[in-house]
Structures are given as structure tokens and as C-alpha cells.
Design a protein around this nucleic acid. Structure first.
Lengths: 370, 370
DNA sequence: TTGTATGCGTTATCAC
DNA sequence: GTGATAACGCATACAA
């Protein structure tokens, strides 16, 4: 009806009050469309469309009339219809495991902020386990997102499906060895090495390591970095025990290390801060160990509680802000370049937070006297 | 071209291998559509459409052929096109202030999970400040979401705009007094009262309160609940100081309270756990105060670090899981009922976590001897 | 059950 | 600069 080739006299319609017109639209149970705005403004539908396109050529007069009519009708362009023809939804899928949001909440917040700044909306997919990526791929294809940032391991097949569908993909903070995928990550292996180097230089010889679960590979990388470095330095092999990234695992891990070693280690490296704090609390409050006097403890992540007075943990910080920025840049440039973007891996160095739970200088070192 | 009324001989097309057909589609730089699947399967486009609609009537034979063709072509229905005609996007906008994701990360994770379980995708909007809701409303209208869950204050005008547009809205954990809005929240006022009641019953008389910022009204409600209750009980007026919800605010708050009071208060109630822990650390580690021996400290939220050995904070927990579930239920029922849902406010009671930083029984009470 | 025809609301192409 | 017209990919009323 409203697309009729014989429109009502333009004058009448143009004069019609927007409010009345809008009431009619509501009565007919329709949405307000660009045709409605065109009718009220007395221009063509395409003119309305142009007014809402940033760089289009419209005369100031037309623009003003259209905008006035649009405001009166509460008109907003329909993104679904637009994406149908432009093939751009301006949405980006962000896939995060449930726990990531708990152990490093800044990641999502930073990504969301950076993407929003670039005009992209975030379609969020939280998964219970890292292996659940497969289950949400179908939704990603359906929703016509312009690209995806995935903070979970992605298999070769999955990467290939992204390529086949021409969908830009950035893997966030997961090291997919040997794959040509765009990824942004913190060098967790190097983080492990760095920590081992510093602690060894300070004179620690016997290490204990509370590793994390294998699934988020970050923990494994940290562990390997530390172990490799200790071996290079010719130190005795560290005692490695498992953990689940939670507070209890840290305490349990320390108990196991002591039991297997028969005595206290010189230093304990934990796969993340939460475990390190569990370890620290057990050591100080239950076992009465002097930390860092007789034993050092260090973690990874630099979560906020680690910086608190009662903890003041020695740890390593991931430059999350820079990483989110890099991921957003990478993805948007892939989207712009229409697939001609070469696979790139952007690695960021971790940053040592010295804290006070680990002795980082040799005993008797000049820096101690200062 | 592909919508031509004179299709190529069905036999030839049906015989054509899906892979070849798909290559052609890619070559033409098109997407795979239901028409393509129809051609390959030798059925009509509407038959294909029906196969992807859950309760439609299709013969097993057709269904099989269509699904086979679809699989061969990697066909997935286009959600944008679908939402254009069904007026359902199956997307829900979730609006969260940046800090909420840091101070209570479970909220977003729980909401996401509950909505996903109900077949809704989450379009995430993070805002820097609670007052930034206005800026993202435009995007919410554009993206044709089926509803919105907002964890920030919403003004009367904004609520009315949701109503005008017929868009279901649930306000999460914000008490909008006197407005007829669907909302789910924890009773923070009652939480404040509860804490005051328990502490007063245990014999505390002089209170200090480290309030939170006014913007997230939860802090104000907690403060008012506590203040009102203390007044009812005829206790001396508490010393109330400001805070920003962060660790430093807690420590600073305690200093101010002591300064204004001239001596230690019996108990300090902090607007959230992070501040309570800042307060606790200062008291124990710098001021050498015996907590809870000579002074009690309590917070709100029951964040994970509060439960750690070195903290073991007395605090109040919000039943976040139930709240997220309620919010998702409320929203989906509004969406289903097509606007005939009456405004409802679902309030959940907080739960006391006794911890060990506050004395909750009178001195000499029998329960102490146990 | 199946196919035909139409519309959802927009952008893009082309004449004018 | 402006307006007709044709897509975009799907779901649905209706006829068969």
C-alpha cells in the first residue's frame, strides 16, 4: 500500500503532522521505515537513505526536512535490512570461555571498548569449556558478523572454515603452534623464562611449580618456559604439580611440593595469581613460613588482589590494554582489506611486577642495602 | 539471474555436484542462499526454508535431500534476512558499566549463559560511566534486538522510549524508585539493614561507614539501610565517609573515620568488598588493630578474594545466579507475550557470609563458647 | 506436502 | 542532487 506508484498529493502528506502519521503506523502494526519518512518529508525514499549515509550527496534543504521528519517519527535505519544489502553487519563475534571473564575480566572490557570505538558491536559468546568453540560456530555463521575474536583454542579445521567463508578471525591469547592464523598474545613462554631467570639469579636453586590445567595453553607455556630455563641454567629439576587455576589448587600444590621434596623449595612458581595467593596464604598463615625470607612465591597475571597490601605478590602482567587494541586493529584491518591481509602474529612481552613475595636479588646484593 | 522463472533442467542441476556449484557461487562473489540449495536439491526455495524451520511440515524425503544439499554447500540461513521478515532477531542487548565487569564478573557470565540457553544471542554494550546509557540507545534501536537487559540507571524518558518502541526492557540490579519497570535486583537496602542489625546485636555501638559512589545506587542503598537501622536502634549516628569502590578508598575511609571520631569505631561497614579489604589491610598491617577483636569490618558482594584465608571477610552475597535466571526469564516472557506482560519487580534477599572480620555475637555469648 | 508469489527495509545503480 | 527500480536472503499466505 505504501509503495503505491500513485502517492497521495505531496502537499497534503507533507503537511500531515508527524505525530498523526506515526500513530497510523503504530495502528497498522508496522515499523517506521524510510518510506514513511520520505512521505512525511515529501522526498523520495532514496533521498532518505542517502541522508543517513555519512558521505552521501544531499542538499542541505533536503537533509533538514528529512531529519526533521525522521525525528518526528522516531525513525532509525534498520541494521538488519542494511546488512542484507551492504554485506556488513558491523558486528563482531567475541568468544570467551566462562572462566576468562572471572580470572581476567579486563580482557572482555578492553576488547569491547576498542571494538566499539571502531564502530563495531560485540556479539558475545561465552563458552563453558575451551573445547566448546565448535558449538557456537553455527551461530557465528548465521549472524553475519564481520569477523571474530576468539579467546580459546581453534583447530585447523575451524581455521580453514573461517577462511573458506572469508570471515576474518583473530585468536586472542592462545598460541596455535604452526598455524597461519592472525593472533595477538602475550608471550607466556617468555614470561616463564623471565621469572625463572630472575629467581635463579637471586640464588634460588630448588624450584616448585604449581602448573595450571592443560586446556588453556597459557599455563602450559608458562610452565615450559620456566622448566626449560631452569634446565639451561643447570639447576636441579623442579617439582611440578598440577592445579586448576583456583585458590585451593595453590594451597594443595604447595603441600604436594613439600611432601614430594621432603623439605621446602627455595621458590614456588604458580601458573596464575589466584593459585599463587592460595599458596602464599597457606605458607604464611598455616605453615608459618617466612615469605620471601625462606621461600619465594610468584604468580602470573597481576590481577588486582595481587597488588593489595596483604598480598603484594611478585607476578607478571600481561599488557591487556595493548593486546586488546592490537586485536581490534588487526581484525578491523582484515575486514577493511577484504581478506587480502596476511596472517600475522603479534606477541607482547609480559612485564614483571616485583611485589614482595619473592626475593629478586642475591642475598647480600648491593641493591638490598640501598 | 538465479531467480529466473525458467530454471535449467532440474535433472542436470540435481546431478551437478554440490562442490562445483559452490565454486560457481564463490566465483560470482555471491553468498550461498536458500535458492542455491533449492536448485541443487531439486526443490523449491520455500521447501528449503521450511526444512530449517523447527516445526514445519516437510516429507522425510525432501528433508533429506535438502539437508544433503545444504551440507554440501555449507549453507546456513542468514539471520539478518530472517529477522527482517520474522521481526525477531533473537538478539538481546546487555548493557553493563565497565566497572561492573571488574567488581562482579559473574553477572555478565551468568546473564550470557542464561540467555544463550533460551536461544538468545547477547549483543554487549559496555559503558564507561553509568550515565552513558543514552549514547548507546541509538545502537539498540538500530540492531533490532528483541529486548534489553540494562545494569545501569535508566531515566523515565528512556523507559518511555522503550515502551514507545515496544521493546522489552529489564533493569538489572538498579532500583528505579517509583517507576513501573521490569527489574531484577538484590535488596541492597535490606542488606544494609541486616548487617547493621547483626552488628548492633553483637554489641557494636559506634559505627563507621565507608560509602560508595552515588552513581551506582547500590552503594547508596546499602548505606541508607544501615543508617536507618542504626537510628531505629537508637545508636549514636555513624560516621559516614565517601569512597570510590576501590581498594585505596577503603584504607582512606578508615583513616578519615578515625580522624573524625578521635578514636576507633566499634565497627566499619564498607560499601563493597574491595573497600572492606582495603580497610582491613590498613587496620591489620599498618595500624596494628585487632580485627575483629577491637574493631569489626564488613563489606558487600562476597567477591572471591573475600573468601580467601588471609581475608575471610564478613560480607553479604548477592544470589547472582538466581538473579540472572530471573532476568532472563522475565525478558523472554516479555518477548513471548508481545508486550502484554505487566511490570514486575523481582527482589532477592542477600545472604550473610559470616567470615571472620566481624564479631557477630555478643561478648560472652554462649555461641562463642561453643 | 509442495510450489508460486509477495514482502520485509534497506542500499546501489542508473537515468534524469 | 534527485527519483525510479532492482537487488539482498528469507518466511509466509495461498493455491495446487
Amino acid at each position: 500500500m505504501r509503495k503505491t506508484k500513485t502517492p497521495p498529493p505531496a502537499e497534503n502528506v507533507a503537511v500531515a503532522r508527524a505525530a498523526e502519521y506515526k500513530a497510523a503506523v503504530v495502528r497498522e502494526n508496522r515499523r517506521v521505515t524510510s518510506y514513511d519518512v520520505a512521505l512525511v518529508a515529501g522526498v523520495s525514499q532514496s533521498a532518505v537513505s542517502r541522508c543517513f549515509k555519512p558521505g552521501a550527496s544531499v542538499s542541505p534543504a533536503t537533509y533538514a526536512r528529512v531529519m526533521k521528519a525522521a525525528a518526528g517519527l522516531d525513525y532509525i535505519p534498520n541494521a538488519a535490512a542494511r546488512s542484507l544489502i551492504t554485506r556488513r553487519s558491523n558486528m563482531v563475534a567475541v568468544v570467551m570461555p566462562h572462566f576468562a571473564n572471572v580470572y581476567s575480566p579486563e580482557a572482555l572490557a578492553e576488547l569491547s571498548q576498542q571494538l566499539t570505538r571502531r564502530g563495531k558491536r560485540v556479539l558475545l559468546f561465552t563458552i563453558q569449556q575451551e573445547s566448546d568453540v565448535e558449538h557456537i560456530l553455527g551461530d557465528i555463521w548465521q549472524y553475519q558478523v564481520d569477523g571474530a575474536i576468539i579467546a580459546a583454542p581453534v583447530s585447523d579445521e575451524q581455521v580453514q572454515e573461517f577462511e573458506r567463508r572469508g570471515l576474518p578471525l583473530v585468536v586472542f591469547n592462545r598460541n596455535l603452534r604452526g598455524r597461519t592464523v592472525n593472533s595477538v598474545l602475550c608471550d607466556h613462554y617468555e614470561a616463564g623464562r623471565m621469572l625463572a631467570t630472575r629467581l635463579a639469579a637471586a640464588g634460588h636453586r630448588q624450584f616448585g611449580i604449581v602448573a595450571g590445567p592443560d586446556a588453556p595453553t597459557v599455563a602450559a607455556e608458562r610452565r615450559m618456559g620456566a622448566c626449560d630455563r631452569l634446565q639451561e641454567l643447570g639447576l636441579p629439576p623442579p617439582v611440578v604439580v598440577g592445579g586448576q587455576f583456583d585458590y585451593a589448587s595453590g594451597a594443595q600444590g604447595l603441600r604436594e611440593i613439600i611432601e614430594r621434596l621432603g623439605h621446602l623449595p627455595d621458590a614456588v612458581i604458580c601458573g596464575n595469581d589466584v593459585m599463587a595467593l592460595g599458596c602464599l596464604d597457606l605458607a604464611r598463615h598455616e605453615l608459618g613460613i617466612d615469605v620471601p625470607g625462606t621461600m619465594s612465591i610468584a604468580g602470573f597475571d597481576a590481577i588486582e588482589p595481587a597488588s593489595w597490601l596483604s598480598c603484594n605478590l611478585t607476578t607478571l602482567r600481561q599488557p591487556m590494554h595493548k593486546m586488546a587494541l592490537a586485536a581490534a586493529d588487526l581484525l578491523t584491518s582484515m575486514i577493511e582489506s577484504h581478506g587480502s591481509h596476511l596472517a600475522e602474529k603479534r606477541t607482547f612481552a609480559p612485564q614483571l611486577v616485583e611485589g614482595a613475595t619473592a626475593r629478586l636479588s642475591p642475598i647480600g646484593d648491593a641493591s638490598l642495602a640501598a
